[in-house]
Design a protein around this nucleic acid. Structure first.
Lengths: 231, 231
DNA sequence: TGTACATCAGTGAACGCGCGTTCACTGATGTAC
DNA sequence: TGTACATCAGTGAACGCGCGTTCACTGATGTAC
């Protein structure tokens, strides 16, 4: 534990603010997140939190980065613990995303739900953590492709070739357009399935075992990605 | 135009409230939607809106039902205008959903984004409109199945058989479990793709032509549903 | 057709509340000589 | 090792603001006889 006592106290307080902010986020949502409420719970006068956070939006950004980081860590750990086969790595990634979302619904909502009106996360602070999951996913596919484990790369819309190339450059991939197209689609399908469950949008069609439903979705996605044969 | 002048004026005012509410929703979001602001814009003292709406949550419910109704109407119209083939009907449905969402991002967020903390839409008022799109989708699949136009019904997780049966009963379907499973998955994938675009979650991986990306997703979903052959 | 009564839209004042942010300040901690 | 100065966390008061909801009221519209 380096630094002066003052520095350590400052980091401790910043951690406390983040922790309290997480709790308030869960209770009232991002739009109603309030600096005064955080200060109250921190046991400090409301103006004091301005020593740690420039304003309300800054606190939100702190929580966005915090959530992306934790999600990224959880997914990294799960994929790291999975077997070397691409199906297993993809399945581990998908399940880790869902598990985190189910455990942290309000933070999931902050990252992948409706945008907060009047707030735009500053890209320079959130991007690094925000792209971790899709980057890992893309590399799982890229590794599998180079190992010859992807079974067929379907067609891709030619109009998007430039965008696919940009993605390939940005993430240093060697995969063809068809695999990128499939990956992007699986990405949105995966996150869509998680949001459907977390946000309760299956509505009247309730499922007794949402985890089984999700696992089935993941199996199907693995087939559609060419990582597994149809059951 | 039936009813007394007073009744007509009341309906007019209710319409005005809904219209103003929609606009405020778009500007400040559901969490910050305010009765006082609506009253102000309506040119009326704040307590007057209580003649029309029981409280703030009631206004939200009004807007939820309004949005579901408009989305349902748009989708019905699009599918009605499509050809008889199941692929065409499914494609029309998907495109109509996306078109509405892109046109009305804040109302899409109200229906399919993060839940509003502290507000739960009363099922007895929202369900009828809320299930229209999935009901229509299910019947497109059911019709196609009975016409022999669905190419193969994959496996379905046996643990969910009871849930599938409930869905079959509720919507009067004759389709097997595998088709229900595929339909549910396509449903969440479709809505997930729309949310990804509307909420700007593709992030750094921007697409110059999001409509082309979406159309490609829909083509793939049609194949996965067994409604079309792979390209 | 005219009158008495009931209904109901809208008023205005009030209640008690919370919010973000600024500012001059105090006093403890840290640093340079 | 001791002292003078700089840094900085936290205080407390204030600014101006908006919110949901209740309540007794006025006056116009609608209805029953």
């Amino acid at each position: 534990m380096p630094g002066t006592p003052r520095q350590r106290a400052r980091e401790q307080t910043l951690d406390d603010i983040t922790r309290i902010g997480r709790r308030h986020l869960a209770e009232v949502g991002a739009a109603a997140l309030s600096l005064r409420a955080v200060a109250r719970e921190l046991g400090v006068v409301s103006s004091a939190v301005y020593r740690y956070v420039a304003n309300r939006d800054d606190l939100l950004t702190l929580l966005v980065v915090d959530a992306y980081t934790e999600l990224g860590d959880a997914v990294d750990a799960a994929v790291g613990a999975a077997g070397p086969a691409a199906v297993d790595r993809f399945t581990a990634l998908a399940r880790a995303v869902r598990a985190w979302a189910v455990r942290e619904p309000s933070r999931w909502a902050l990252l992948y739900g409706s945008p907060v009106p009047g707030y735009a996360a500053p890209a320079e602070r959130t991007t690094a953590q925000g792209i971790r999951v899709i980057t890992l996913f893309a590399h799982i596919m890229d590794d599998a492709w180079r190992a010859g484990d992807v079974d067929g790369a379907g067609a891709a819309p030619p109009g998007l070739a430039a965008d696919y190339q940009a993605i390939r450059d940005q993430l240093s991939l060697s995969v063809p357009d068809g695999v990128i197209a499939a990956t992007v689609q699986a990405w949105s399908a995966l996150f869509g399935a998680v949001s459907f469950e977390v946000f309760g949008q299956y509505g009247a069609a309730t499922f007794g075992d949402p985890e089984a439903l999700f696992d089935h979705t993941v199996e199907r996605l693995a087939v559609q990605l060419g990582l597994a044969a149809a059951a």
